[in-house]
Design a protein around this nucleic acid. Structure first.
Lengths: 320, 320
DNA sequence: CACACTTACGATATTCGTAAGGATT
DNA sequence: AATCCTTACGAATATCGTAAGTGTG
């Protein structure tokens, strides 16, 4: 017969090898005594070897029985190890989470989520790649990160996107600027002639801004292109131009000397999404990290960010 | 749920982890496809972890799945090792046989059995302790040997004896001796006055001889006591006395200058027995050795030795 | 004769295969 | 439309507990 015992069978065998009593083994393993007899008989049949010499008064391991007992002990240990290793991963005792996030999230929500995660699960290694929207997709596809937090992009066939929240655009203006005199909403049309400070094309900020102006048949041509939000705000404060940014991105960096006015018509919302490989589930650790990030987003919504449950939102066209 | 998978489940899991196809796994493991699905579902339930991400078009290991695959590989290897180790012992590929034998057997039957055994099973270590009858019992009890071949002794409560054969006593006489003129049977009474050469008390030879004379109310007092059969025969040949020995013992050593006459009245048969620890089965290797020894005994019976199947025979009293 | 292991047997649980269902390319 | 995995369900198998049987000290 073939081998078909279970780890529990091994445990029972080891218990019997230790106690040398079917009765006590049955008690300790919560079985009836005949069940132990049957189990040992099955094992012996499977191995084609007599494991115990037994009369009603004496139970003794045979030679092969002793050999198997030693092996069974190793098997038992290894089985427990295997279960523990898998459980460790799923219980976040060990593991790793690598994710990519666009600058506005990498500087705000993600660090707070990391802090809470690290506190609860010190055994899990965390990696954050601070990238623009475009490269984030590539990193997910290449497996460098388990997921990415970016603004929505045209659907990739091999990527899944889950909307998390969306934020509205605001215009940052130097306090000394004429437009800074009131805080009433502005339209994109009204600000088309201003010198603009924006981000490079691979960024979602830029792509959404392009789309917004395009609705007015205006081709957006920023005067300055900078990668870092803090730098952009510094240029704004210096009076070199204005910057149309999503709320969350506008929060990165100091606000001194800067006034903020809402942008409407179209009232553009940049949807932030979770990007994963299609059909690939997140590791337990990553799944937990997503939860924390969602929680942070919800709490950082001072009424500004809008949480979302809706299906994948339409996004402006353009390169990833 | 608790862990209750079988080695076969592990094999199926590993096959699936390798092929990443339920269909091919089912084929190769001689299962239906749904059975594989159910098996994986069971494993996942037992580990409380998703092991595969699967759509109809793609099957991928999850993070925990990869961890478990590594552990499962080790488990699989160790399981095979365990089975092999046990089978090796039972198939006589490895192991050892230690036995004790009284001189007459240690010099005749046992070496021939050893030769055949060693040829068929070169991996098994063989140990022969050449002892007198008395110490042989102690060696069995102490576990130094698995079994002993001696003449029957009063039953020990913790030892089992199995009769193998018995041999009749003969008298060895120098060719020049008056008794050597014919080869007709002699009675013990007729030889009582001769100077005797015998073995020490712990030997079965001596114990049986004592018993034989006692039937005639004669206290046996050998003129010479020697431990080695060959020496005894040398003394006989030199004309120093006669020696009453069992047939098998009489065969040890050269026969030059010696005549042999049967001894009767009582016609004493020394039963040779296999002695083992009660209730303890022989190792597969030892069991095979016993078979070979029995075969050798049967073939060396030139009509002299009488094989036995009977229950434990009565034996003369005396120290073990 | 009391205790411990084995056998017998009916009840329950598990595992399997066939057939139908659903999803992806 | 074809292929592959999943679900549904009835059949075969395995496992367990109760009760009776057997042997040992």
């Amino acid at each position: 017969m073939m081998i078909n015992w279970s780890p529990r069978d091994i445990e029972v065998f080891l218990m019997l090898a230790e106690t040398l009593s079917f009765r006590r083994t049955a008690e300790r393993m919560h079985l009836s005594q005949p069940a132990v007899t049957a189990l040992v008989t099955r094992l012996e049949a499977a191995l084609e070897v007599k494991l115990f010499d037994r009369t009603t008064r004496q139970v003794q391991l045979t030679g092969p029985g002793r050999v198997f007992a030693a092996q069974a002990q190793r098997l038992h240990t290894l089985t427990e190890e295997a279960v523990r290793a898998v459980r460790d991963v799923s219980s976040l005792r060990v593991g790793q989470v690598a994710l990519a996030a666009m600058p506005s999230l990498a500087a705000t929500v993600v660090p707070r989520a990391f802090a809470r995660f690290a506190q609860d699960h010190p055994g899990v290694r965390l990696q954050l790649f601070d990238t623009l929207s475009g490269p984030a997709f590539e990193m997910v596809r290449a497996g460098q990160v388990e997921f990415a937090l970016t603004a929505a992009n045209p659907a990739y066939p091999d990527l899944d996107t889950l909307p998390l929240a969306s934020d509205a655009f605001v215009l940052l203006i130097a306090r000394t600027h004429p437009l800074a005199q009131t805080s009433a909403p502005l339209t994109w049309l009204e600000i088309a002639q201003e010198p603009h400070i924006s981000m490079p094309l691979p960024s979602s900020v830029r792509q959404y801004a392009d789309a917004a102006f395009l609705e007015h048949r205006i081709r957006f041509a920023p005067r300055f292109e900078l990668e870092h939000l803090a730098s952009i705000k510094a240029l704004v404060a210096a009076g070199l131009g204005v910057a149309a940014l999503p709320e969350l991105a506008a929060n990165v960096g100091p606000d001194e000397g800067i006034v903020r006015r809402p942008l409407i018509g179209p009232e553009l919302h940049r949807p932030m999404v979770l990007v994963t490989l299609r059909g690939r589930s997140l590791s337990p650790a990553a799944a937990h990290m997503v939860q924390l990030i969602q929680a942070e987003m919800a709490s950082s919504e001072g009424g500004r960010l809008q949480s979302e449950q809706a299906p994948p939102s339409r996004a402006p066209s353009g390169q990833p």
